[in-house]
Design a protein around this nucleic acid. Structure first.
Lengths: 351, 351
DNA sequence: TGTGTTCTCGTAAACGTTTACGGAAAAACG
DNA sequence: CGTTTTTCCGTAAACGTTTACGAGAACACA
């Protein structure tokens, strides 16, 4: 179906055009442009001038083919299903940081989107197998993640935003300290007199749900509070899921006096359920959200939440990824780095 | 700096491997895979089986080089400056629709991000000149947009989300009917008894700001209300800008009784200014926002707003773009389509 | 002057595809 | 059986790069 596209560009000059124009060989032109040593100083000068004059820039397909590298990194962005109208604002600042650091290394960032419903595996395979990118960055890691299994089995370079139990220690990862956030949230609530604290998290095997719960449990134990399974609930990771599961928890015979939500969308749905029951966050119940978004801030009452520093995280993960790839890393060779970053509590009106 | 990356992939089999394995020529293999007519039915069968067995998939760089087309479309995503913590949720559903339709044509979507502050021109040139994509999609169109000038001068295929005065009728565009939304907003407010209605919009030469104002003016005239320049104000397109300009307008001697904000972030900042002055939207003043986001919905009071249907718009713009490219379009040849879609009023509590 | 080094450049192959062309074999037709 | 058409496949060039190799010229040194 597709033939030549954009072939009529007047600005599409090749290395051959430069060579012909200067009456030298294409080899010399290429060496001059790539800054190799074995080219005379003033032929290099002439080549660079001609390149500017003829508006030359290298064809990336040709270069990729020859070098076996595309100089682009793929980020797999997966919209959540049921996330009807608007997507996750979470990723934009992260991507901003990621892209900025990659640009320092002259690498392009390419965001690959999947259909909202289906899982990413197919799209990921496509990127890898057709060699559209040199490495990929994964997000929304699951506890057992077949994308990670696939990539490490294939020996394809990648890094993850979020940890997983899959793949061992073979890839760099950067995660938020959900465990500590869960712990601190409980700490804060206990200090304010709460003993019946509910934990609401997404199902789907998303790994941060487990980490959060670990911290929650650990803090309860430290305070000598028995963990009540009836206060721990999973739901679909969107507003409807949060509504549903919150309603369930609040209808149990022994209600919690505080809820920690592991996701902002679920918190919003939960608050809707609370409102319908006449229960006011900040007055009748305490609410804390683990990952802050603008919605938490503008909601009424404004929700107390733990906030990550997304843009620096994006920058850092780019560095970690690059350091793990032999062809990019310095003489020391590849290094696998894993980091877990703290969150900052933003105290507002809901607890 | 970069050498071979991922070259050790066990799954990287080429068309030569297939040919050797089957003892036929690479030409035949290629023809079989591409479904050409001049290949025997069972050699095609054997090729397809071998391709599956050896896990073959074509190297995109090789294919792109030969065909002069990359089979990918670039979307230029530009985070607004000062948009500190979280970015625009606006684009995710739009991109979801765009990607879905492109996938139907076996095209990849590649989102190219720029630095938050600087303008996109440089990054755009890079994509075009290194021929990383076959076409691009632009957003945040300005009234005079040098990206559009550049692309149409270069003869590079593109489409825009939003109109512009640049480039003439040479490219497809899909826009929201800001004019009508501004008109309807005034209508609604006048029907509720307002006569002093302020219009607050972004500066930056963003085109939708002009369109909105046209509708606003037209509706006022229709109702026989004189346009008061003191009620029209421009500000930086973020919360701080909205705060600033709203405070200014409210400090004028003859205050408005209603405000139409042309941007959600500015509306949020404006409401903060109002709150500090003890003015309550929905009681002491009416507030309407032109483009709805989840923030409008969760804000307190929930903001009345006009909502676009972003995902269908993404799908439609993909179709329009493809129809405009000779190599993609059907036998009728290229067609330039321009569409303007209506918004839906979501009445909430602020007016 | 002869020999060895250093600079500089051209030649050609290679990366993985697709495709125009031609030719051999098979089929169709008289 | 001879001729023409059809079917099928191999050959080779081409897309735009990079780079290993070698060779000529200039230079240094004895």
């Amino acid at each position: 179906m597709l033939a030549k596209v954009g072939g009529e560009l007047s600005l599409a000059s090749s290395i051959h055009d430069l060579a012909r124009h200067l009456n030298i060989s294409i080899g010399t032109v290429s060496r001059a442009l790539n800054g190799r040593a074995d080219v005379n100083a003033d032929t290099r000068q002439r080549v660079l001038e001609a390149a500017k004059k003829l508006n030359y820039s290298p064809n990336q397909s040709g270069r990729s083919l020859r070098q076996g590298a595309t100089r682009s990194i793929a980020f797999m962005l997966q919209p959540h299903p049921g996330d009807q109208q608007y997507g996750e604002p979470f990723f934009i600042p992260f991507l901003t940081g990621l892209q900025a650091r990659l640009a320092d290394y002259d690498l392009d960032l390419m965001v690959v989107m999947g259909e909202p419903g289906q899982y990413q595996q197919e799209r990921l395979r496509r990127v890898v197998e057709t060699r559209r990118a040199d490495a990929v960055v994964l997000a929304n890691t699951r506890r057992e993640d077949d994308r990670i299994d696939y990539l490490s089995k294939a020996g394809f370079p990648f890094a993850t935003l979020g940890r997983s139990q899959s793949g061992g220690d073979t890839y760099p990862s950067l995660d938020i300290d959900f465990e500590r956030a869960g712990d601190e949230a409980v700490d804060r609530l206990v200090a304010r007199g709460h003993r019946r604290i509910a934990a609401i998290r997404p199902s789907h095997d998303l790994n941060f749900g487990y980490l959060f719960l670990d911290g929650y449990r650990k803090a309860l134990e430290r305070h000598g509070i028995e963990v009540d399974p009836g206060l721990i609930a999973d739901g679909f990771i969107n507003e409807a899921g949060g509504y549903q599961v919150t309603a369930d928890v609040m209808l149990s015979k022994d209600r919690p006096t505080a809820i920690i939500f592991n996701n902002d969308a679920m918190a919003l749905g939960g608050c809707k359920a609370l409102a319908e029951m006449g229960i006011r966050p900040g007055h009748d119940i305490a609410v804390i959200v683990i990952v802050d978004t603008p919605l938490c801030r503008y909601f009424s009452p404004a929700l107390t939440a733990f906030r990550p520093s997304l843009e620096p995280m994006g920058q850092r993960l780019a560095e970690m990824l690059l350091a793990s790839i032999p062809a990019f890393a310095g003489p020391e060779g590849p290094r696998i780095i894993r980091e877990v970053w703290p969150l900052e509590l933003v105290a507002r009106d809901s607890d």
